[in-house]
Design a protein around this nucleic acid. Sequence first.
RNA 1: GGUCCCAUCGUCUAGUGGUUAGGACACCGGCCUCUCACGUCGGGAACGCGGGUUCGACUCCCGCUGGGAUCACCA
Length: 481
Amino acid sequence: MKVRSRFAPSPTGSLHIGNVRSGLFAWLFARHHGGVFILRIDDTDRERSSKESLEEQLDDLRWLGMDWDEGPPDPAYFQTNRVERHRAAALTLLREGKAYPCYCSAEELDAKRKQAEREHRRPVYDRKCRNLDFPSDLALPDKAAGRNYTIRFKAPLDGETVLEDLVKGRMVFQNADLDDWIIIRSDGSPIYNFASVLDDADLRITHIVRGDDHVPNTPRQIQMFKALGFEPPAFAHLPQVLGPDGSPLSKRHGATSVVAYREGGYFPEAMLNYLARLGWSHGDQEIFSKDELIQFFDFADCGKSAGVFNPEKLLWLNFHYLKERPVAQLAREVTPFIEKRGWPIPGDDAWLEKMVATLHERAKTLDELAEFASFYLKDDITIDAKAAAKFLKPEIAAPLRTLAAEIDSIEGEFSAAAVQQVFERVLAKFNFKLGQLAQPVRVAITGGTVSPGIYEVIEVLGKHRTVERLNSAVKLTEQRA
RNA sequence: GGUCCCAUCGUCUAGUGGUUAGGACACCGGCCUCUCACGUCGGGAACGCGGGUUCGACUCCCGCUGGGAUCACCA
């Protein structure tokens, strides 16, 4: 049987790191087995669902390369479009005696629950309405029509429900511990747990891959698959992704959405690689291409315990992918991050590539790369006060002036090698060591004490801009004198 | 509280009865060096506790402790 797995996000906000990880594993599993990956939109929470969230999440998925074989924009893959199917199935269950109407009010139920908690009893539905007689042609709830009841699933009272989980192993649940849950609300709408089972069944999902927070619901769902006449699919429940403090990853842990990293200048390769290695491993290997991930992925290699999201390792992976990226590609990719800052690019593509090359092994993200390029792009650089105080002292004015003149007189190709020759002459003339001149020059032309090699910086900056900056630095030293 | 799950360096993990318990991130130090990085060499750092089983337990079993998930007319 062909593998069919799915990812079913709710478009109620940004796509969460922990969430996509489950989706990624479902995707990897499908691709590994040459199966079908399905994207279903669980948008039944109309209050919080939005078109914007949906588009953003789809963009995230496309960015990560998690392509789907079935799903949006096909309307059949939106849960809200299936409520009639859900209701019809509930009605069938009712007719078959596998479900029944419950006339208990929400308030009544709530009171009982609280009472049970006070008395340290299990806060489950007492099945008060289970054996009530009801007309064989009873219609589904409809508040407007005065049919103000809910429909409950008539769950088995004894026996056990077994979950053979692909990552967690065998779990046995006593049916006596499970209650008769509501499948249709008093307003006639289906409950997620019910809708979800029906959707998975109709979609012929063979493997449900999701977070292990769904485990407690699974025995009920297995029972529902059977009640509906379907063979339950296989399940793979993945452990949670936690924040540094050990609590489930949430907004207060900082950036936890895919879009935050996408916009933060991270590469999809890094994100994919990081997410895959969080909870899954393949020996000692750390770096995986997408194809390797697909080739090696197996639930048997997934850990059973929750993992802490480590932004620093993600950053390291991103750096790895950045280092091995061709400069031309990087130049293209960093452009939006420069434009975002409103900075000009004072040169052609070849120049931009040269610039990027000098920053290549110093920036860890595209965003950082853009930030570090500041002094190449803007002419109104700000000289760091502390750096100026330390390196732009009056006695450096003469060497700087000489250097400026020498650089200005370079004929022919303005290359790092040519610049180096000039430096050597000036160094000899003033009997300086390279460090004594390089740091002041660095401060003069970049505004700070940290930059790529001074010769290459000057080459990229060009003769004119270098000389100008050196001269204004000379003025600065004179002002300080 | 009920049900269920989990437990190797700070973090991600390898390990499936016999290993100096391995790798990676982070951290610390050396080298390289015009600064910062990169690179490179090296270092510290873990099997939660207690019982079994066994010639031998990180590995198997039980208990404890600790952590977590979930108990809605939310998804």
